[in-house]
Design a protein around this nucleic acid. Structure first.
Lengths: 141, 141
DNA sequence: CTCCTTCATAAGTAGACGCTTATATTGAAC
DNA sequence: GTTCAATATAAGCGTCTACTTATGAAGGAG
């Protein structure tokens, strides 16, 4: 049952996976915690008219992008968010952080190291404010 | 020349825009600073076989997603990264930050406020580590 | 073993998307 | 003015993508 789980451990096509609104919604539904595939189907069908295979295919794409992880429990498939994909996105995005963010990064790294000793390894750190920015880009003028 | 610049100031279809590798490359090319459209075409053509209109169309999508901003200088069109779109991405991504990140966010906000007084308003803060995470998600086990 | 539940895969199709060539528009230079 | 340089838009087209229905495979219950 259920094809062999031989994902390549890297995170290819992450942005492509996030390009679809249904897949983003799936991730949002998974944000609070683990969910069975069936529960995700039900939740989506309460919002949109979509079939079970469609959801399954979306979950496959998310899996291949390392954005979700699965483990079987009986006949159920329990999905959860996978940090690997999100980290890939965050790290790409970091390239566009303003220059002044760098020292802050260093501080964060330090703090994160301290926390890591408190057990909680290698988790993503992302924060953002949604308002449009003024002219404060790295390019200056 | 050049259609009227009436973008809606919001950032729709940001993830869709980032879904294309050429558009991501364009943003990377713009990361160091402002670039003329022609320079971007030249840079891309040094890597891939692509036409000028194709690049122009990609730039249009990036514009509509608030991922780049333009201003005309003579007959040139100078493009730069627009924080609005990146902020939208970062803020969506923030939903998936681990719980322990919250206090850190507060610290950051405080630090950012201090910097804001030093002039440099409302810029995005994003940082991430690319390595795959251990079992540290919000969903616990 | 049989039946039901849960989920994935197969095959086919409509539409979206990105590319190309051709052309229009605008500013600068002569 | 005419001409050139820079960029955007228009039209057309192949391909990729997400959907559907139909089916398969596997675990649990009786």
């Amino acid at each position: 049952m259920f094809g062999a789980p031989d994902e390549p451990a890297t995170a290819p096509r992450v942005f492509e996976a996030l390009g679809d609104p249904v897949r983003r919604r799936l991730l949002e539904l998974l944000a609070p915690g683990e969910q069975a595939a069936g529960a995700l189907v039900t939740a989506l069908q309460a919002e949109t008219r979509i079939s079970q295979p469609a959801v399954s295919q979306h979950l496959r794409v998310l899996r291949e992008a390392c954005l979700v992880r699965v483990h079987a429990e009986g006949t159920r498939r329990l999905y959860r968010v996978d940090d690997a994909g999100l980290d890939a996105v965050a790290s790409w995005l970091a390239r566009f952080s303003d220059a002044f963010a760098q020292p802050l990064d260093a501080l964060e790294t330090e703090l994160a190291r301290g926390r890591r000793d408190r057990r909680r390894v290698d988790a993503a750190r992302v924060s953002g404010r949604a308002r449009a920015a003024g002219p404060g880009r790295a390019s200056g003028a």
